[in-house]
């Protein structure tokens, strides 16, 4: 079973929910947390995992053998990303624009193009107590996160509960992180920004046809518009976490909320139990 934690707006509490939920459930069910916010992964701050393995992740980019190249220009015509450009000459390559589709090497009639890996980041795996842990870390200056997110998701194991911490937004990195999961939890806050971005996130998960529910974090700081929207759209509110200074302080120190507030772990465990029941029936 796979559950992704997402949100349109950043800073609403995705990582808090992902780490506390995964940590709570891991005490009684084999669980793996995947930190797919590879641009700014933060789960490790709260879990202090022991990293056992680090793998580099690359995107295959073209390497042109200029001896074999006849300058026919077919590679440049095929490439949609201007990553290989040929103007009636031997081609120039721009590896940072390459998506790794492999088209240029396939189309080359002279067999002059091979593919080499360009590193986009690393995937680290290990464990924190009973919880298995994986995160991707995008190389600084690298624009393309989806290939790295795909690499993190190769750690999905059908026998385990997988919790995915997704990046903020509604574009390709988020899609890559949540595609194929069984359920998405959207975390929001009760403010105009929170509501605006929640609506975008709802449209995104609906497009992907994944069942979802909402967690309202910092309930009480704003208004009731998020709750009214969810009611109107018949979206279940799974949990409301009050705006509690103890949670904010624990977060600021990099500590788990379940350790700061008695009874919170039970809330996460019953949230999981409800979702598990729902998904079994679904």
């Amino acid at each position: 079973m796979q559950i992704a934690i997402a949100s349109g707006k950043g800073g609403t509490g995705k990582t808090t929910i992902a780490t506390n939920l995964a940590w709570s459930v891991s005490s009684h069910r084999p669980t793996r947390l995947l930190d797919c916010d590879v641009e700014e992964p933060n789960c490790h701050i709260f879990l202090n995992p022991e990293i056992e393995k680090t793998d580099t992740v690359g995107v295959p980019v073209p390497l042109v053998d200029t001896e074999k190249c006849t300058g026919c220009g077919k590679c440049g015509e095929l490439c949609q990303y201007s990553a290989i450009v040929s103007m009636k000459s031997k081609p120039l390559t721009f590896p940072e624009l390459c998506h790794g589709c492999g088209g240029c090497s396939l189309v080359c009639p002279a067999d002059a193009i091979t593919e080499v890996d360009r590193e986009v980041g690393v995937v680290e795996s290990g464990k924190a107590g009973k919880l298995k842990f994986v995160r991707g870390l995008l190389r600084i200056g690298e624009a393309m996160s989806p290939p790295l997110i795909r690499a993190v998701k190769t750690f999905i194991d059908e026998d385990l509960l997988t919790i995915i911490d997704a990046p903020p937004g509604t574009s390709c990195p988020v899609i890559e992180a949540i595609r194929g999961v069984d359920y998405v939890i959207l975390v929001t806050e009760p403010t105009p920004f929170g509501l605006n971005d929640l609506i975008l996130a709802v449209e995104t998960v609906r497009q992907l046809r994944i069942p979802f529910g909402v967690i309202v974090n910092r309930a009480g700081i704003g208004d009731q518009e998020v709750q009214a929207y969810c009611e109107k759209e018949k979206i279940p509110i799974l949990l409301e976490l009050p705006d509690d200074r103890r949670i904010a302080e624990a977060y600021s120190r990099g500590e788990m909320a379940v350790n700061a507030i008695a009874g919170l772990q039970d809330k996460f465990n019953s949230l999981y139990a409800e979702l598990a029941e729902y998904l079994n029936e679904y």
């Binding site: 950043g10 800073g11 916010d37 641009e39 700014e40 995008l138 600084i140 200056g141 690298e142 624009a143 393309m144 996160s145 990046p167 903020p168 937004g169 574009s171 990195p173």
Partner: peptide
């Protein structure tokens, strides 16, 4: 700008 360090931030 947007959060993160990827494509839209670089742009």
């Amino acid at each position: 700008g947007s959060p993160g360090i990827g494509c839209p931030v670089i742009a």
